[in-house]
Amino acid sequence: MSDQLAYRLESVAVRHGSRVVLDMPEFDVAAGEILCLVGPPGAGKSTLLRLLAGLDSPTRGVVWLRGERFGEAAPVALKRTVSLVFQRPLLLTGTVRSNVEYGLRIRGDEERAARAVAMLERVHLAHLADRPATAVSGGEAQLVALARALAFGPDVLLLDEPTNNLDPARVALVEEVVLADHKARSTTVVWATHNHFQARRAGERIALLLEGKVVEAAPAAEFFDSPRDARTAAFVQGKMVY
């Protein structure tokens, strides 16, 4: 398996009862790329991200991460190279700072306090460091969750529509922080979004998911300028109604 690959999915399927929610015969994610997963709600984006995070295992098939078999039972050391930001951030009881420190604390990082503050500065929330996590707004909580996910320097950052409930200024901040981290550390980013403008701004490669299947995956320019599939064209032109 190539060193250039972050993920390889082989004959992966996820079923909930008799319903197939994800069906990906073959799919790769290159190391260091920003892949945007686009598609309507219910297309299977979150299901795929949970597989890539090692939170769930597929009903069928194999997920490989850097050549190692990946899933719920994968070694902790491998799982710790991946981080996922959820659509609805849930913070732990304690201060904002202790939340950002969490990933560092469970890894035994001695410099966690300084790293957490630096991370909070990057999301413009250093002034809230000692505030109880319960006292921050929804938008602030999402930025804290992003800081928490990035603080320990994951190789892979998975984003599950993290900007859905944010105002435009914070959407821009999230994009800026993620792209800066990617540039600085060559982080592999898999970003689920149903907003094609965001995919255009952030993605190097775009994959359209519909009903659990990849309709088209291509470099961003190709995906947006010369889509091969009619459904991709409809999505790109904003004609896909959902």
Binding site: F86, L90, G103
Partner: peptide, 13 residues
């Protein structure tokens, strides 16, 4: 359950 998932996603054993 999502909080448990989020803690796991941060690398908790």
């Amino acid at each position: 359950h999502d909080l448990v998932r989020q803690v796991r996603s941060l690398g908790a054993t």
